[in-house]
């Protein structure tokens, strides 16, 4: 059961979902996220070493690399579930490397999980409402006694939750329990829940993994829309045809080190990246075989030299699929 075909009105901007787009004040402010000489050891193993990158507001940054490159370690350090061994993570100039996840969420860093992490006993709407925890928090005696203020705050929260469910295309099922959702719909619900926290920075752990092609297209549209509204997006992804047309900046890791950084085009052409992914330059017999038929391939496949090299083919499929979806 896939969500209905994307229609433009379903992806209208959410009112006040995120801080407004760049103003004079924010232009002078430090970048949204700065990662400085970030390092993590596990005993003698160096999982991530001296990693540096910046992420601006409205930017989509993809963290890629072969298995074991340190993507997840980096992701977990930024999400607060793993403490860095050395180096710094700065959120709007504030050092947040040692903050636990709930504190980061309060500062506007929300995340999704690779294997959906939803609250099974709750309806879709309640799941989204948990994302607004920070905004709804107040002393318990007020909850018990200030009935009108409490009711109004809840009503506003419900309305916003419904808007977000509309945004990801799950509005029809908002009162259903989570158990009724497909995997892809669960991913969309997690996205809505993360957006409910009005994040400045949103972290996606392999957003396309396990999705059907049409769900992938939808996810790509949603990520673009989120970034357009001023939120920084950081994602780990294996699915190159999904992420290359999406990412403004790509950081390539291999054995815990950053081996390349730049736009998707620059990364595609980088010999070191191709080397890291393939080990050597062979097996490029039939380029057509390696280019996926559609952008939203559900397969988690290591990109071949051909799909990396064959830029026009990938780019055209992507733009075709995207505009097709938008027109539908």
């Amino acid at each position: 059961m896939t969500p209905p075909a994307t229609s433009p009105d379903r992806l209208r901007p959410i009112s006040a979902a995120t801080p407004s787009t760049v103003s004079d004040a924010t232009r002078a402010a430090p970048p949204l996220l700065q990662v400085r000489r970030l390092t993590r050891h596990f005993g003698g193993l160096i999982a991530v070493s001296d990693l540096d990158f910046d992420l601006q507001r409205s930017e989509i940054l993809a963290l890629i690399g072969p298995n074991g490159a340190g993507k997840s370690t980096t992701f977990n350090m930024i999400a607060g579930t793993l403490a860095p061994s050395a180096g710094e993570i700065l959120l709007e100039g504030e050092s947040v490397g040692t903050y636990p996840p709930h504190r980061l969420a309060a500062l506007g860093v929300m995340r999704t999980f690779q294997h959906n992490c939803l609250f099974p006993g709750m309806s879709l709407r309640e799941n989204v409402l948990t994302g607004m925890h920070g905004a709804l928090q107040r002393p318990l005696w007020k909850v018990m006694l200030a009935l009108r203020a409490q009711r109004e705050a809840e009503a506003r929260a419900w309305q916003y939750a419904d808007e977000l469910l509309e945004f990801v295309g799950l509005a029809d099922q908002r009162d259903q329990p989570v158990a009724t959702l497909s995997f892809g719909q669960g991913r969309l619900l997690e996205t809505a829940r993360a957006l409910a926290g009005r994040p400045k920075l949103i972290l996606f752990d392999e957003p396309a993994a396990g999705l059907t092609p049409s769900e992938c297209e939808r996810m790509a549209l949603i990520l673009r829309q989120i970034a357009r509204q001023g939120t920084g997006v950081l994602l780990i992804e294996h699915d190159m045809p999904f992420l290359l047309p999406l990412a403004d900046q790509v950081v390539v890791l291999n054995f815990g080190q950053c081996i390349a950084r730049g736009t998707a085009d620059e990364i595609r052409a980088d010999p070191e990246v191709i080397e890291a992914y393939l080990g050597s330059r062979h097996g490029a017999a039939d380029p057509a075989k390696n280019i996926p038929a559609s952008t939203g391939s559900a397969n988690v496949h290591p990109p071949s030299a051909d799909s990396v090299d064959n830029r026009p083919a990938v780019a055209s499929t992507v733009s075709g699929a995207t505009s097709g979806a938008a027109d539908a």
Binding site: A79, H102, A105, A106, M110, F113, C117, F119, T130, G131
Partner: peptide
């Protein structure tokens, strides 16, 4: 139900 996800939403 899910402490990990609870922490992630703040």
């Amino acid at each position: 139900d899910n402490p990990q996800a609870a922490a992630a939403v703040g």
